[in-house]
Simulated scan of single mutants.
Amino acid sequence: MSPEALRRINSIAQMRTRARSALPGAVFDLADGAAEDEWTLRRNESAFDDIALLPKPLDGAANRDLSMTLFGHKLSMPLMIGPTGLAGLFWPGGEQCSARAAAAAGTAYCLSHGSVCTLEDLAKTGAAPRFMQVFIYKDRGFTRELTERAAASGYDGLVLTIDNQLTGNRERDIRNGFTIPPRLGPVEVAGMAIKPGWLWRMRRELPTIGFGNYEREGKAIELGAQGLRIADMLDPAMAWKDVEDLRKIWKGPLILKGVLHPDEARRAIDHGVDSVIVSNHGGRQLDGAASGIEALPGVVSAVEGRIPVLVDGGIRRGVDVVRALILGATACLVARPQLFGLAVAGEAGVARVLEIYRSEIDRVMGFCGVTRVDDLGPDLLLRMPWRQN
């Protein structure tokens, strides 16, 4: 896509439409889909409709500063890229593309455990600040191994995701028969062939694509019916003791992702966690879970300003970021939108996604008469939704 055509994409919704046109149906659904009836996926976006702003334009905001600080890192805006598995399926070197785009935009990037590239290869881009996602595995030694590799590769924070102890029932993927590596039978090849641009870009990667961080001595863990599936490695019996053990291993910022309940946020602080991400995994795990923005006020109240509270889920406009900040979030994360940008134009597509968010956040702050992110407060809300008693 030419730079001129990319600049004509003016919203995340428009980027999603372009991504749908660029990708085979099964690959698009991998990014776009969620669990079961996808109620939580829809609620992640629709819940923002319940939050109305009361702008104060006469406060005067000719110049706006969107920057903020997280764990000692100055970010150019209160938005970063969250972890998404298999970004390298949407564009060759997808994870590296997104990380470079984030760094160029002055913000942070979090690598998924399920990245196509290894965490070491991502570190070689020099993109920073960068965070690494880990899980609690039945083999606690593997959890420790990934953590120590992240430390050795200079990652700036560790994101322990806790809402994936069971595999979500993602029915789009089931209907599509989606597998990693992708099956390349006649039906699958026919479906890919109608997207020749994607197929041509991915022609070298497809036969061997997989989860780079699960390679051992140059050989990936087999993911077929006879092999060890990653889902089987996750431990539903994980508990606070595992958080304590991880805290002893990891010396940098430890972030807990997948927190919705205020009690869990309080306990996280007691167990040495440095930040929480209010998240329902993009609706991909428990359908029926509260949206991130609905759960945010309760978590903010529970932590009482002791740690930063981040939030993700359904953030499709800059005004959604502003709404979240007014409700007490320190910053927001986006995931699907950067995959849409990747699918459309690789690194340039992700850069455009971030540019769209930045422009929209800036415009909303200007309308509200706010010059600094820290000045966004509840006085700008018509009502406080889902207020906790």
Rank of each mutant, 00 (worst) to 15 (best):
I255H: 02
I255T: 00
I255D: 01
K257M: 05
G258S: 12
L260Q: 11
L260H: 09
P262D: 04
D263P: 11
A265C: 11
A265V: 12
R266D: 04
R266W: 04
R266T: 13
R266G: 03
R267T: 01
R267K: 06
I269D: 03
I269M: 03
D270H: 10
D270W: 06
D270Y: 06
D274I: 06
D274R: 15
S275I: 03
S275A: 14
I277A: 06
S279F: 12
N280R: 09
N280G: 12
R284V: 07
R284P: 09
Q285E: 04
D287Y: 01
G288R: 08
A289E: 07
A290C: 09
S291M: 09
A295M: 13
L296N: 07
L296E: 11
P297K: 14
P297T: 13
P297A: 14
G298P: 04
V299Q: 05
S301L: 14
S301A: 15
V303Y: 02
R306Y: 03
R306M: 01
R306T: 03
L310N: 04
L310F: 12
D312L: 12
G313I: 03
G314R: 14
G314F: 15
I315S: 13
R316F: 13
G318P: 11
G318A: 14
G318Y: 15
V319W: 14
V321R: 03
V321P: 10
V322C: 05
A324M: 10
A324N: 09
I326Q: 10
L327N: 10
R336M: 09
Q338K: 15
Q338S: 15
L339I: 13
F340E: 05
G341Q: 10
L342Y: 13
L342D: 08
A343P: 00
A343V: 01
A343C: 03
V344L: 12
V344Q: 13
A345P: 15
A345Y: 12
A345K: 13
E347A: 11
A348S: 12
R352W: 10
V353K: 14
I356V: 05
Y357W: 10
R358K: 08
S359C: 02
E360P: 09
E360H: 11
D362V: 08
D362K: 13
D362A: 15
R363T: 15
R363A: 15
V364N: 02
M365H: 08
M365Y: 08
M365Q: 13
F367N: 11
F367Q: 10
G369K: 09
V370C: 04
V370T: 02
R372S: 01
V373E: 00
D374T: 08
